[in-house]
Simulated assay, not measured.
Amino acid sequence: MIVETGLAPVLAVAAGLMGGVVLLAGLVGGAHLTATTMCDGSSPAGRTTSPCGSDLHPVTGLAGPERGLVAAQAALLMRGVPYSWGGGGPDGPSLGIEHGAHTRGFDCSGLAEYAWAKAGARVGGHTSSQWNAGVHVPRSQIRAGDLVFFALDPARPATIHHVGIAVDATRMVHAPSTGSTVRVDTWAGDPYREREFIGAVRPAVADAAAHPAGRR
């Protein structure tokens, strides 16, 4: 069972688009959500293995906002999966490389690649390709599914080191670092994240063929 406050609208709409099963209770105000759409047939709390991911088939024929919702939901359903350096891709969590070689999971760009693959777009497997995988949107227009980037020097895209998938204008679902798991954090207003925020990108589905998957 997943019980979340404030994530119900994103998950509910996207689940309908993907054909998932979502039961909602109290959508007005601080909604609580019960979701049962895990590809391994279990609930997140009771899961003993990482979700396979491949059962969430990519969608087609959706408009931009709808694709963003699908990408956000795909990432949200991976909450609790371990961080793995170099791990993850369009088919879901995988063993990483170097210090992630023994952990099946996602790093930040692997999660972003997976989420948008489920929405029908190839954004590549590294933050450098993802930064150029769509349209750069103003901070005031960030919506669910947009990729949110952070850099050591916000004036230099070459220093981007982290990406998350927007849940809304202030929160993102991401794979933070070794030892952590995929989770939702509020980045807006956080001094560390604010210092490093460089921008947001809305992936372009029409350009999917131009962004083959890469390794990080």
Rank of each mutant, 00 (worst) to 15 (best):
P154K: 10
W131G: 06
G61R: 04
Q130G: 04
W131C: 11
L24H: 03
R79I: 12
A206L: 02
G53S: 01
D207L: 03
D190S: 07
A188P: 00
S140V: 13
D55L: 09
G64D: 15
D146P: 09
D107V: 04
T37Y: 05
F197R: 02
L111F: 11
E98C: 08
A115K: 02
G100A: 09
S42C: 02
L11A: 00
G64T: 15
R171W: 11
G145R: 03
W187E: 09
A206M: 06
G189F: 05
H32R: 10
S94W: 07
M172F: 01
L76P: 13
G30Y: 05
A101W: 00
R202I: 13
P191H: 09
R171V: 02
G125M: 13
R67V: 01
M172L: 03
E98M: 13
Y192V: 07
A15Y: 12
F106V: 07
G89M: 12
H126M: 06
R171Q: 15
P138I: 10
A35H: 14
T49Q: 13
S43H: 03
S109E: 04
K118L: 03
G29L: 11
D146N: 06
G134I: 07
L27H: 05
E66C: 11
A175Q: 01
G19D: 10
F197G: 01
V123M: 09
G29R: 08
P203M: 07
K118D: 01
P154E: 11
A144S: 15
A144N: 10
V167A: 12
S84L: 04
T186R: 14
F149L: 06
L23Y: 13
Y83H: 14
L27R: 13
F197A: 01
V201I: 14
P90K: 15
G134E: 11
L111M: 10
M38P: 00
E98T: 11
L111W: 09
H174I: 03
T181W: 07
S180M: 06
I142C: 04
P82Q: 08
A166C: 05
V173W: 02
S129C: 08
D153N: 14
M18K: 14
P176G: 10
